[in-house]
Amino acid sequence: MNTKSQVLCAWCGVIFLVLFSIGWVLLARFLPPISPALSANDVAAIYQQNTGAIRIGLALAMISAAFTAPWVAVIAAQMKRIEGDSPVLTYSMLVAGAAGILILMIPTIIWTVAAFRPERDAELIMLLNDFGWLLFVMTFSPFFIQNMVIGLAIFGDNAEAPIFPRWLGYFNIWVAILLVPGGLVTFFKTGPFAWDGILAFWMPLVVFFGWFVVMFMALLKAIKQQAQSA
């Protein structure tokens, strides 16, 4: 059994979290988010004053996004053990997870374009800033499908010793629903449903990070169980 490589893949999820936090939070200082209510000049000023750190931070965040590939793969490997011969939920998870990598990666490049020539017109900087943030916060749908199909697959596990505990299925569906308010950011520039708001941004962010931690523990347990049974 190739459980060693599976454990490695699961750790890639943690590597993603750590690298992304260092780059996106500590260096680029994109947390708390740049407010959608700011004027073009204020937004441009942020990119002009912090150019170097933003460039390095976003590059690090871009690199970190790729580490979700092995992470998605190890979830798929365990899901396939549940589904057996026609693993449609596993494939759905895999495709949605692949889209998820791009959703994490492309905004970092769009923001990088803004930081590439920070001296350009403030309106253009704001356009790129908006583009990056909307792409990053509003696109909940692939993650929604990803969590939903993981939940459904867990519910379909009728074995006496299920690979994942059933509550993890409910947890995944709960996480999926919590990501939905992100889709509302198109309507608001202030308040809880703006892209820096508590319900459209902070709640999904906390839940998404929590999901990584919970899934990581569950994956390690499932891999261990697989190794013992082999």
């Binding site: 053990r81 057996g84 011969d85 379909g156 596990d157 009728n158 074995a159 006496e160 010793a161 690979i163 169980q225 013992q228 049974s229 082999a230």
Partner: peptide
């Protein structure tokens, strides 16, 4: 499902 399990050598103990 149980049939598929056996081919994947899944444990059946709780």
């Amino acid at each position: 499902a149980a049939e598929g399990r056996t081919t994947h050598e899944r444990p059946v103990v709780a």
